[in-house]
Amino acid sequence: MDICVFLSAAELDERYTTPAREFARLLGKGGHTLVWGGSESGLMKVVADGVQEAGGRLVGVSVEFLHTLARENADEMHIARDLAERKALLLAKSDAVVVMVGGTGTLDEATEILELKKHGHTDKPVVLLNTAGFYDGLKQQFRRMEEEGFLPVPLTELVFFAEDGAGALAYLEETAGIR
């Protein structure tokens, strides 16, 4: 299966790189394809390295203004004109989405897929991988949105919060038939 992973291109410490590497190995060993932002830096590189080393395929979608950071040895690399086209390509090339730790770009990507799900424009499973409690605050905010009527569908229909990579893949296998 083709699994889109939204995540940071920043250099991060072991709290984030170790779990990311473990998740990447699970993806690769499972024979899955990583669909990601295509960067050869930071956490994006850690995950791409792990997937590739474990036998998985890499499909990158970079953007023109970042093309010099794109991974050269990906199985496929696509260069989008802008960030909006990049997000659309990432989603079009994937069967499921996992959101790992990241900054505003990752948050933008995550909210886009959740908005599409909310309106019934996709039924792809979405997992927020809550490494080291990174998304605890966002989870609380989503629950408040649900409680106060800002979400027209139950939060559980939009996103699954996983505490580790094994939990994320187990959820995807259960809901999307990913093997």
Rank of each mutant, 00 (worst) to 15 (best):
128 L>Q: 03
64 E>Y: 12
141 Q>L: 14
4 C>N: 10
98 V>Y: 10
160 F>H: 14
37 G>I: 11
70 A>F: 03
66 L>R: 07
131 T>C: 00
45 K>P: 05
104 T>Y: 12
138 L>E: 02
29 K>W: 15
3 I>N: 07
136 D>M: 06
79 I>H: 09
117 K>T: 10
84 A>F: 14
40 E>Y: 15
14 E>T: 14
163 E>L: 10
58 L>V: 04
122 T>A: 00
18 T>V: 15
12 L>D: 04
139 K>R: 14
38 G>L: 00
130 N>D: 09
76 E>Q: 12
104 T>A: 13
27 L>Q: 06
171 Y>H: 13
129 L>E: 07
166 A>K: 15
77 M>F: 10
45 K>M: 02
167 G>F: 08
88 A>W: 10
117 K>S: 13
38 G>M: 00
86 R>A: 02
145 M>F: 10
137 G>V: 10
63 V>I: 09
18 T>K: 13
121 H>F: 12
58 L>Y: 06
118 K>N: 04
141 Q>T: 14
25 R>D: 04
101 V>M: 00
102 G>K: 11
174 E>T: 13
140 Q>P: 03
160 F>S: 00
71 R>P: 09
63 V>K: 00
64 E>N: 12
138 L>A: 11
170 A>G: 13
149 G>P: 06
146 E>V: 04
89 L>N: 09
103 G>C: 07
95 D>V: 05
152 P>T: 14
87 K>C: 06
64 E>G: 10
81 R>E: 14
96 A>T: 02
138 L>S: 03
37 G>V: 07
50 G>R: 06
